[in-house]
């Protein structure tokens, strides 16, 4: 037996032993918050804290880094750009590298201090905390990011509702989707906040629901569609299932839906638009009219017999 063969066998045995001897270890982290907002005036200082937990079963080293973030106009995905040195004195992280034992937590503090001569503007910071590779081979490490939406001063707020409409003008029953498209033509990141209220033909309120319940943001120069559903979502059924739906959840008439929202929490509600829908439960109406005809005919026949 050659020395090479013996060595190969030894390596195979060691590898097999390692599989059984080494405990399975989980490589996991948790992070909060995953997105946040900072609003301050030039010259002021604000801090935000983030908490990282090492959920792995072994100690891990971590490293923080900053990126400037912009957003793809089509996919809306964040794009992480190189951090400009010009912002080094304005944005700082209190720790660069650190080690956490299993289940240990670390608070990372981000401090933002825009110079007093900073013009009103907004920027998005990508704070990334990533595990540091432990050895030289092919290593795979998890990392997490938080998007920090910073508003400095009072940048321009120019939201425009480009459309507000229902999923269809005429429906036989609920649900009906209402979709509002908003474009952010200003410099401030928007977070539309408001309601869609549905009124019947007598101007009586029928339903009210949040137009952006999860407070999605619209970065500058981006547009977003916000969809809210009037009625419970469901799968469209056959004729009889839809008929049953129309009878058990009666709704009929001409309705007006009004979108009323503020461009961000705390601002005045300046966004307003209306649209109209008709709910016509035609299956139920056909049955009712049919019953009416049958009843009328039968009554006339009885009368003619007398």
């Amino acid at each position: 037996m050659s020395a090479t063969t013996s060595l190969r066998r030894l390596l195979l045995v060691i590898t097999a032993l390692l599989f059984f001897v080494l405990p399975n270890y989980v490589q996991a982290i948790s992070f909060t918050p995953t997105a946040t907002d900072i609003s301050l005036m030039p010259g002021d200082t604000l801090t935000k804290t983030f908490t990282l937990t090492n959920n792995s079963t072994v100690a891990k080293n971590y490293q923080t880094s900053l990126n400037l973030v912009h957003f793809d106009s089509v996919t809306h995905e964040p794009i992480f750009d190189t951090w400009p040195a010009s912002l080094n004195s304005s944005v700082t992280v209190d720790t660069q590298t650190f080690t956490l034992d299993p289940n240990q937590q670390k608070t990372v503090t981000l401090t933002v201090t825009p110079p007093t001569n900073t013009t009103a503007s907004s920027l998005v910071i990508g704070l990334i905390v990533a595990e540091v590779a432990s050895s030289a081979s092919v290593q795979v490490t998890p990392g997490v990011s938080s998007l920090v939406f910073v508003t400095i001063g009072q940048p321009s707020v120019l939201p425009v509702i480009t459309s507000f409409s229902s999923s269809s003008f005429a429906s036989s029953s609920l649900p009906i989707d209402f979709t509002g498209n908003i474009i952010n033509n200003g410099d401030r990141t928007l977070q539309p906040f408001g309601t869609i209220t549905v009124y019947n033909v007598f101007s009586k309120r029928v339903a009210t629901f949040d137009m952006n319940p999860t407070l999605r943001r619209i970065p500058s120069a981006q547009n977003r569609a916000f969809t809210a559903t009037w009625g419970a979502t469901r799968v469209t059924g056959n004729f009889f299932q839809e008929l049953w739906r129309e009878v058990t959840n009666p709704m009929i008439g001409f309705f007006t839906a009004e979108l009323l929202a503020a461009p961000y929490p705390g601002a005045d509600a300046t966004l307003s638009q209306t649209t109209h829908v008709v709910v016509l439960p035609w299956r139920a109406l056909i049955i009712i009219i049919g019953l009416g005809i049958v009843t009328t005919v039968s009554v006339r026949r009885r009368r003619s017999r007398r």
């Binding site: 995953t34 964040p78 030289a136 092919v138 290593q139 998890p142 990392g143 938080s146 939406f149």
Partner: peptide, 15 residues
Amino acid sequence: GTYTQTLSLIYVGDY
């Protein structure tokens, strides 16, 4: 030789 690389998978929450 031994080829090396570190791949980082980064979680980014939507906003």
